[in-house]
Amino acid sequence: ARNPFLPVQNPYSGKWAKPRYSLRMQKELVKKAKACGMVGLLPPGPKLSLEEIEAAKRSETVAPRPDKKQDWWLRPVEWSTEPLVDKAKKAGLVTMYVGRKRMFKGHKWERVRSERLRRHRIAMKGMAKQVKSYKSFYHRRRPSPLAT
């Protein structure tokens, strides 16, 4: 089953959708599950690790009885457990910067600076020639009275 505690990535746009339950709601649910001893029924998420669920499943006594029809919501479910958020933490990286192209975005002028300098350098290479050509534009076109 789709895990409502984890964010989902849209395969077409690549954008992330928030989990159906906010972290605050997840924490509330975990608290309630611990109060009534049903931690094994919740999917794993940032507020509830897989180990905790396994431990709870081993110790819990709540299980669906096949003869009781209204216990269908207690049946075991295989939740998707892709560790989307923990990937970076496991690699020992600083979570804030993982997946970013550069550490800080910077100002626009800082980001385009190198390209601007490159173009400037190219323009300055032939600048003397360009100025000379610009200034002599009408000289070249003025009809000479001495021309044959």
Binding site: A1, P4, C36
Partner: peptide, 18 residues
């Protein structure tokens, strides 16, 4: 209370089971 907690858990399961 435990009854309220169980009710909330049941609601969660019913809303999210396939």
């Amino acid at each position: 209370s435990v009854a309220a907690a169980t009710k909330a858990l049941k609601k969660f399961r019913i809303d999210n089971l396939p």
